[in-house]
Design a protein around this nucleic acid. Structure first.
Length: 500
RNA sequence: GGGCCUAUAGCUCAGUCGGUAGAGCAACGGACUUUUAAUCCGUGGGUCGACGGUUCGAGCCCGUCUGGGCCCA
């Protein structure tokens, strides 16, 4: 379609207009600025691997066709240099001399080709007099014309530009290229760890008739075909439990959840989550699994259990991680014994004493969790399982086998934030129904995060689910904990508001 | 939700006391057969986020809005 030459708008910024004029001029001269294919015999990586150790000023006699984006261009009189870069950042120098390519091709190289263009260069693989591995062109051709100038390579782009134009960020910033490859490395490691333990990966619905499995506000949508409201899922939990009922005894899913809540440096409206359920396991077996998943992932990206946190601090995630009891930590923090049976009025006094602003909507357990977070934060830097959460904020968790009012639930803290949570799952369908009915009453009273009574889920539970341990972990947060990056760096294309 | 900072050339940023806008890279023209952010000579490029106000005069002061960042809740 590029043969049809549309007029160029005259109100464009100078550099954009000039490049559009170059494109039009190429077409007029019968040169295709976007050819269907160009010569390419090897990747730049192949060339680097094969000839990386050449001495200075060596001619190999080998002719190859190489492609890349022009990232530097140094035009001199009769010998020109350019640096080609391919996707992973590998670079090779290309050289264009008058005696090899002739006056016409040299002039065209200087005037038609810009920084950012893709080209194919065919020539001998040599090392220059300065020792730079190069392709000395016998011929070259344009592979794709860039109509926009690249940003200054030597000044970092502003954070906003990096996020809005990640494609440019990936071209110019090595860390962006590295970061983009961290996530798939971690994903592969997680899947390997699961696979080695005979866990089966499933995909459960993202569009749901009824959302559930977590305390969060959903995104609402509408199906024209079914003429009904649908919700983007907030968690896969209730479907993964249906899998366990059906006999997929070790199951996991790595996929996106959507929560219609605030966005900040550790929350994104859409985020990736790992959930896993293990029949005949419990909160302790699933804690061991979680520790293995994270330690193997650390090994996969940094080759050891030592990782760098957001403030540059190094931390060793190896070994067996610390456990603390939620209520013991609260008791130490407030200087008095607090249990799950401590009356709410007493908790309110403690909360006020330590300086917490109390939300009147908080239930007893929520108040205890708030006090915990307030008094125990500094104990949570090294990986720590916080054991035994209040039962009234854990409607999908079974009661602790000994402690009244406590659920067999832990939260894993790494680098001061909540990274994962794990349960001994509630499997008694009658108790589960009571809990969900209780939740729906909170919902009726205006709690927008309360769960609903999911009759199909309860029917599944009534067919009996074996004793099960389950866990959930935020993938973005895992990457943050393993790399020290902000959430907008771990997500390739985070949501940004439109520019105009 | 509250507070603070911020928006100027393609990119990154200066812009003093309110007096018609500056740099580096990039671009354009020229020189250069071993450059590495090449160098040298020359040139062009701006709705100063938007709207309103104060003023003889606003990039700068005031207000509102929009985008972005940081801190707090």
């Amino acid at each position: 379609m590029s043969a049809d030459n549309t007029p160029i708008e005259d109100d464009l910024p100078e550099q954009l207009r000039i490049r559009r004029e170059k494109r039009a001029d190429l077409i007029e001269r019968g040169i295709e600025p976007y050819p269907v294919s160009v010569a390419r015999t090897k990747s730049l990586k192949d060339i680097r691997a094969k000839y990386g150790a050449l001495d200075i000023d060596v001619a190999t006699g080998d002719v190859e066709s190489l492609t890349g984006r022009i990232i530097f261009k140094r035009d001199t009189g009769k010998l020109c240099f350019a640096t080609l870069r391919e996707g992973d950042g590998t670079e090779i120098q290309a050289m264009f001399s008058l005696d090899k390519i002739g006056q016409e091709q040299l002039d065209s190289w200087k005037s038609d080709i810009d920084l950012g263009d893709f080209v194919s260069v065919t020539g001998e693989i040599i090392s220059s007099k300065r020792g730079e591995l190069s392709v000395l062109a016998n011929s070259w051709s344009l592979a794709a014309k860039s109509l926009r100038p690249l940003p200054n390579e030597h000044k970092p782009m502003s954070e906003e530009t990096r996020v809005r134009m990640r494609y440019v960020d990936l071209i110019v910033r090595p860390e962006a290229r590295t970061n983009a490859r961290l996530r798939p490395t971690v994903m592969r490691s997680l899947r390997e760890t699961f696979h080695n333990r005979d866990f089966i990966e499933v995909e459960t619905p993202m569009l749901q008739v009824m959302h559930g499995g977590a305390a969060a506000r959903p995104f609402k949508s509408f199906s024209n075909a079914y003429d009904m409201d649908l919700f983007l899922r907030i968690a896969p939990e209730l479907f993964l439990k249906r899998c366990v009922v059906g006999g997929i005894e070790r199951v996991f899913e790595i996929n996106r959840n959507f929560r219609n809540e605030g966005a900040d440096s550790s929350h994104s409206p859409e985020f990736a989550m790992i959930e896993s359920y293990q029949a005949y396991g419990d909160w302790r077996s699933i804690a061991e699994l979680t520790q293995a998943l994270i330690q193997n992932a650390a090994m996969a990206i940094s080759g050891s259990h030592v990782v760098t946190h957001h403030d540059g601090r190094q931390a060793n995630l190896g070994g067996t991680w610390k456990e603390i009891s939620l209520y013991e930590a609260i008791s130490q923090g407030v200087g008095e014994t607090v249990t799950a049976l401590t009356p709410i009025e007493e908790l309110k006094q403690h909360a006020t004493k330590v300086g917490i602003k109390i939300d009147p909507k908080w239930v007893t357990g929520k108040l205890a969790e708030e006090i915990f977070e307030h008094v125990a934060k500094d104990q949570l830097i090294e990986p720590t399982f916080v054991m035994g959460f209040p039962v009234d904020t854990s409607p999908l968790v079974r009661a602790h086998r000994e402690l009244p009012g406590v659920a067999e639930k832990w939260d894993l803290y790494v680098d001061g934030f909540e990274l994962a949570t794990g349960y001994s799952e509630l499997i008694d369908p009658v108790v589960q129904r009571d809990r969900l009915v209780e939740q729906s009453k909170l919902g009726a009273k205006g709690d927008l995060e309360a769960m609903q009574v999911d009759e199909d889920f309860l029917r599944a539970m009534e067919f009996a689910m074996p004793p099960t341990g389950g866990m959930g972990m935020g993938l973005d947060r895992l990457l943050m904990a393993l790399t020290g990056l902000g959430i907008r760096e771990t997500i390739l294309f985070p949501l940004v508001k439109p520019e105009e």
